[in-house]
Design a binder for these strands. Structure first.
Lengths: 184, 184
DNA sequence: GGCGACTATACACCAGGCGTATACGCCGAG
DNA sequence: CTCGGCGTATACGCCTGGTGTATAGTCGCC
């Protein structure tokens, strides 16, 4: 939902072609999630079908038809809602790190190793971002800061969890023994 | 990739039916991402096709055929790699909050309002989690702590960004004026 | 005069995800 | 005893999102 709504939002300042839309997208959001040309057109088709955008003009002649898309009033409503509606709770912690640690615990792999490797990768990435941050202003500064904040959150969690792994493992074993589930 | 690998990992302790697999999944990961029954079977089909799992037995007679699935050696390798490989950088900041603030800035909506609403929602959620946390041990404590850490990261970013919004907006307007792009 | 870069779109395909249909057994209410 | 609901178990169809590739004209340049 996020990608299509983002594209829709980029139509708000005025009508645009799929191609220019993609260029604008790259300018602001490529850092967060790269986007293929192909997807722009399928997304525009869906938005049109759903009444959130419409084709204002089809300019034919030189090359392929150029289709000018415009956001509808309904589309503006959707963007509006998306922008201001707080994220639902579960989306806040969507990373896979926690899942990976859980799997390690369940499968007898060493979770401390998982944490250690992730910690190294994060530290490397943070150093790069901190360097980049010093030269940044405006929107880029916002983006860099956002990523740094979440890497930092992961690091704190890594420290805290690392200290607790022993206790967690015991809990888990106990929980499993309470089972007697049907397993071949 | 994460969901299918997670299911695969749950096959490691021993062969299982799709149904029991889903129950096990719910037990450990439902908090993070709910999973429909339907998806379990299509995922198992893909895993089988790709040689990461195979059918060990088809038990027919009472009701629908019960199919027992087993992880293959290759499957174990895939889980192993996934568990220990650090997440790629871009995945760390996958939330939409930053995107929503950017859209607000681009579209003339009030980004401070976006931040304020998200802040309220986060604070509410955090109070609930902190209460839950006091009664938690083991794996659940890990999960709660993980989410809390990321909510906290968002809050810090919200504070920091809020103070900088004026400067960011200027940067953004300047960048746009440097354009003269082909727009309607 | 042909080659590459840029503008512009369409199409086919795959994975992931959601809802619903199907089928059997068991158990309690009436 | 039978009917309906619940638990076990799987299959199927459909949609969204995402990726790659084909197509086609235009422009500049050597």
């Amino acid at each position: 939902m996020s990608t299509s709504t983002t594209l829709l939002a980029l139509l708000e300042p005025g009508p645009a072609y799929g191609y220019t839309l993609k260029q604008n997208y790259d300018r602001w959001f490529a850092r967060r999630r790269p986007l293929a040309f192909g997807q722009v057109y399928s997304t525009l088709a869906r938005l049109t079908r759903d009444g959130l955008a419409d084709q204002v003009e089809v300019e034919s002649g030189h090359g392929p038809d150029r289709r000018l898309y415009r956001i509808t009033a309904q589309g503006v409503g959707v963007v509006d809602e998306w922008v201001f509606a707080p994220e639902p709770p579960e989306a806040s912690a969507a990373g896979t790190l926690h899942a990976r640690v859980t799997v390690a615990l369940l499968s007898g792999r060493d979770p401390a190793d998982v944490l250690a490797r992730q910690r190294e990768a994060h530290l490397t990435r943070m150093r790069a971002l901190q360097a980049q941050r010093r030269g940044s202003t405006g929107p880029e500064l916002l983006a860099v800061t956002y990523e740094l904040a979440h890497l930092d959150a992961d690091l704190r969690w890594i420290e805290e969890s690392g200290a607790r792994l022993g206790a967690v493992r015991e809990q888990l074993v106990a929980a499993r023994e309470g089972d007697d589930d049907a397993r071949g």
